[in-house]
Simulated scan of single mutants.
Amino acid sequence: MRMSQWAHDTFGQRVPLIRQGVAEALSVALENALDAQKVAQTDHLHPFGFTLMSRKFEALAEAFEDLGDVRVVKPGGSQHELVLLDGKLLFPFRYAKDRSISVMSARIGDGRPSALVQALFNRFGPEPRMRQLALHDVAPHAVPVAEALGDLPEDTRLVLIAYACNAHAGLLDAWWGEAELLDRTGSLRWHHCEEIPLAQESAAPARSEGEAAAFDEGVPPAPALNPRRGAARLVAPVSEQLPFGPEAASGA
């Protein structure tokens, strides 16, 4: 998959390495969630949701733990740690349970975004393309959280990792890019969004920016896990109200 200008500007020559690490981390988190659901032996999907909610953050940290410029941070008010990679704060969230929703219509959560999420967008998201209300006007409760993020560098950039999955079909697709938070419902305006090739996708043609997968493309199998941990497994290709996400609250 070719390297876009945005990806190069964001991660430099390490784009294939980091892109692969993100895809593998999502696969690991999903596989762990499926295992938890199987062990629980229940028709309710809470084990899947709660496990995915936590493991998506942990698996990202594990994927990049051996890289020298990685810092794992735990913002005040959060139960989870985020990966700060070369000044880019990686933020994974599930935007859909199936392919009926385009990533361009993605929302952060099923309800009002948490104070922490709003503060992250306000402080580290891209400059809004339209004038917005100040953070204290839109979400007064988020102001103390924003102040608690003061130990992060001012030039930190928020990189979103949006993925679709469910407990039956597995990981359907994944995207990354930058977006602004539009309103209290979690609606986004993407400034850039591009697909992350999954582990099982080899010679499949790349989709254009913003193009969602079609229903007739079939459901890909869950990617096989890599037994190695951390950056050692990342090799360049030969060519929530929950603090962050709705998974636990909404099941699968």
Results as ranks from 00 to 15, higher is better:
residue 34 L to E: 08
residue 80 H to M: 07
residue 116 L to K: 04
residue 19 R to Q: 07
residue 104 M to P: 11
residue 57 F to L: 15
residue 108 I to W: 05
residue 179 A to I: 12
residue 114 S to T: 09
residue 5 Q to R: 13
residue 18 I to C: 05
residue 196 I to E: 00
residue 133 L to Y: 06
residue 186 G to Y: 00
residue 52 L to T: 09
residue 144 P to R: 14
residue 70 V to G: 00
residue 164 A to P: 02
residue 241 Q to I: 15
residue 32 N to T: 01
residue 37 Q to F: 02
residue 152 L to H: 11
residue 148 A to V: 04
residue 252 A to C: 14
residue 42 T to L: 01
residue 187 S to W: 00
residue 112 R to P: 00
residue 101 I to L: 08
residue 66 D to A: 12
residue 155 D to S: 12
residue 242 L to N: 13
residue 102 S to L: 10
residue 27 S to G: 10
residue 221 P to I: 08
residue 109 G to V: 15
residue 155 D to W: 00
residue 35 D to V: 11
residue 219 V to Q: 03
residue 180 E to K: 00
residue 45 L to S: 05
residue 176 W to V: 00
residue 71 R to W: 15
residue 132 Q to N: 03
residue 209 E to I: 05
residue 55 R to Y: 09
residue 178 E to S: 12
residue 123 R to F: 09
residue 156 T to W: 01
residue 31 E to T: 15
residue 28 V to M: 09
residue 162 A to R: 13
residue 88 K to H: 00
residue 133 L to F: 07
residue 1 M to Y: 06
residue 85 L to F: 11
residue 62 E to P: 04
residue 130 M to C: 02
residue 158 L to N: 12
residue 111 G to T: 03
residue 153 P to E: 14
residue 156 T to L: 01
residue 11 F to I: 13
residue 190 W to Y: 05
residue 209 E to V: 13
residue 74 K to M: 08
residue 43 D to E: 11
residue 119 A to W: 01
residue 243 P to Q: 04
residue 228 R to M: 07
residue 66 D to R: 11
residue 128 P to V: 05
residue 218 G to W: 02
residue 105 S to M: 01
residue 76 G to T: 10
residue 184 R to Y: 03
residue 83 V to F: 13
residue 141 H to L: 11
residue 147 E to M: 13
residue 68 G to D: 06
residue 139 A to P: 01
residue 217 E to S: 14
residue 79 Q to D: 10
residue 177 G to H: 07
residue 78 S to G: 03
residue 110 D to I: 03
